[in-house]
Amino acid sequence: MGSPIEAWEGVAAYFTGAGGGMPLVWMLIALVVTVASALSAFFHENKSYRDHRGDPH
């Protein structure tokens, strides 16, 4: 987490955690959040359909 650099001279990749292990961790968490959010849409829809079963509108 935080800055991977101490000075700007000669820097290429300077994003948070560049060159360390944290970017992989953030990416995995973001991936899990993305997939879980997509799956939550299914659960939300299924619940909505159950709640409105028999509703003529």
Partner: peptide, 16 residues
């Protein structure tokens, strides 16, 4: 505030 600094998946999570 850190849009110029974040690793993009971290920006995603902070926004989330």
């Amino acid at each position: 505030a850190g849009l110029d600094l974040y690793w993009p998946p971290l920006a995603f999570l902070i926004g989330f």
